[in-house]
Design a protein around this nucleic acid. Sequence first.
DNA 1: AGTGCCGGGAA
DNA 2: TTCCCGGCACT
Length: 375
Amino acid sequence: MARILMTVPVLCLLVKTFTLGTDANAGNFGTQQNHLEQGKSSEELDMDKVTAAMVLTSLSTSPLVRSPPVRPNESLNGSWKEGGFVPSSTSSSGYWSWNAPSDQSNPSTPSPPLSADSFKTFRTPSQPDDGIDEGETSNLLFDEPIPRKRKNSMKVMFKCLWKNCGKVLSTAAGIQKHIRTIHLGRVGESDYSDGEEDFYYTEIRLNTDSVADGLNSLSPVSPSLASPPSFPTQDAIRPENSCAKTETKLMTPLSRSAPTNLYLVHTDHAYQATPPVNIPGSAKFTPNGSSFSISWQSPPVTFTGIPVSPTHNRPAGSGEQKQSHTVLSSPPRVAFGLRKPRGEGKKCRKVYGMENRDMWCTACRWKKACQRFID
DNA sequence: AGTGCCGGGAA
DNA sequence: TTCCCGGCACT
């Protein structure tokens, strides 16, 4: 099931990418790949495959990874531009999907969970907001009431997706420069950008009023904590399944995630999450190499019910993705009894009044639970 | 509207 | 850590 979860959005994204005529990027990657692989022996290429597999496996367990920071030259055989959706003989499972951490043998590319607006529009982080709150958008799509949230509670951060990095910066320019200088080695051309670094970072929108504990996981550590749910029948999933068909199946496990409130992690350039390096991997899911059908293209809204956060598979409470877009409404806090019952007795405020605030207990002055007139 | 206090930011 | 306060839940 988890495989479908990850596969479906990417496949649909691929279709959309095709339909949007973004072959230019693909061609660019193909060129890079050809360029980078020139002069490599077959053994070296095999090592690249293994390396890519390890990287991808590692990344697949990374909580926040949306797009694997794998360079184009690490892609497997097959050309993105040439329509080479050829089943890879190196695939151990034969399917291209998100795998549970235990499935270390599969060099699958973690298909980035796609946000609703990943389908809606391709934006870069630097583009101005369209004025529609992301949470609102998804809520509209789900036809669920917009949760109350505090003003100015959204934070936008940019996280480096480079392996073992995960640096989080507050500005797109900063993360781009970081990637250019640190990972791409373009020290001398720090001001020049060909856009490649866009592939290696993601925008994270945090609904900060509900994810205090989740911020811990913004650090680039603990990939081992990532625990995509594995479902017993996931190996039985066949590529013949259409998006629409799998969509229904996806809902069940997702519904189990039981988010307690809203928490939004969003990336704006999901299209970048599927660099050509993924394509050969994507071919794996089609053993006959011919199932890449246009039928995968579905109305974007079809997939908005899928938790789109890269970490939605993590164990509850293990990180920033504790809550994500789902079809579920956010249960009221009261349901969990998190807010302790209101004290019945008089409190400093009532006893002394606002004019004698200096007589209040410290807690009352700090608007904390009164410690003087404890119930 | 008033009150209690959680959650989180600033210093 | 201390102090403060926005804002939610409840009265």
